[in-house]
Write a protein that binds this DNA or RNA. Structure first.
Lengths: 142, 142
DNA sequence: CTCTATGCAAAACCTTTGCATAGAA
DNA sequence: TTCTATGCAAAGGTTTTGCATAGAG
């Protein structure tokens, strides 16, 4: 049912690590927010419900979630790293408004295909990619 | 002749800022290195020739160069920001080996074109983009 | 002369780590 | 019982900032 929690637990098992309440609580808050949170923002959310959880635990949990393929970090331009859930969230890239910060999730199978070819042409086996488009949204253009 | 220096000076003028020896010296070293330097690496280079230049000045200069469109920051993997000259260096994206860190500069007009369309379809006017492909290079694959 | 740019050191910002202890297996 | 995960605070790595002074216009 909760795929992310399953994924977490099977990753923990595979790695010989232990379960913990904190990690599940942090994961719940992360998934519930449905946003691209920074570690700090997630810590603030988590603190409201579970005030005893420490900041380091949130950082450690996010790192773990990334390793377990539950989330990934976004390489946007400024500020702290942001994390995005992978589960229940198809792969996509980002289109960000330079003016207001609004963003869209976009995807182009054709672009992905060309990326494959580009990598192959250089003798690389493509594993992943990060694409961020920066522009002006319809509102900020006027 | 030295387009980058011209660009710097016209930017300074436009912004009502003053010229300085340090900025030109830092720019010279930056361009001469022809690498994707971090601020620290550039500072080390600069120090050899001009020991009296301070680290903060290098950071301030790099920020300025970005604003003046002389260089741009790369958000490659981890660690500190890296800077890349724009002038005398056509636009390109990066293909990085996850294993050894080796990288290639790549470009695909077709992808750029599709990016335009993707942005337009969402009502955005595309201004720039960052594309980084991660994979395994021919050596690390074997 | 005026006011920006610099150098220095300190601060700020984000993230990781050491250590003693709580808690899972 | 054993050994990982946690919480705290301190340290780490990178970048920015305050302030007095040098230096450009």
């Amino acid at each position: 049912m909760n795929t992310a929690k399953d994924k977490l637990n099977s990753y923990l098992e595979k790695e010989g690590m232990r379960r913990s309440q904190q990690r599940e609580q942090i994961l719940d808050e992360f998934l519930a927010s449905k946003r691209h949170l920074t570690a700090e923002e997630l810590y603030d959310l988590v603190k409201e419900k579970y005030p005893e959880i420490g900041q380091a635990t949130v950082y450690r949990a996010l790192k773990l979630f990334c390793e377990a393929n539950i989330c990934r970090t976004l390489n946007l331009q400024e500020g702290p790293a942001r994390y995005e859930a992978i589960i229940g969230h198809e792969h996509h890239d980002h289109l960000i408004c330079l003016d207001c910060g609004r963003f869209e999730e976009v995807v182009s199978p054709r672009i992905e295909e060309l990326q494959q070819k580009l990598a192959e042409a250089k003798g690389y086996k493509l594993k992943e990619h990060r694409l961020v488009l920066y522009g002006l949204c319809s509102e900020c253009r006027s």
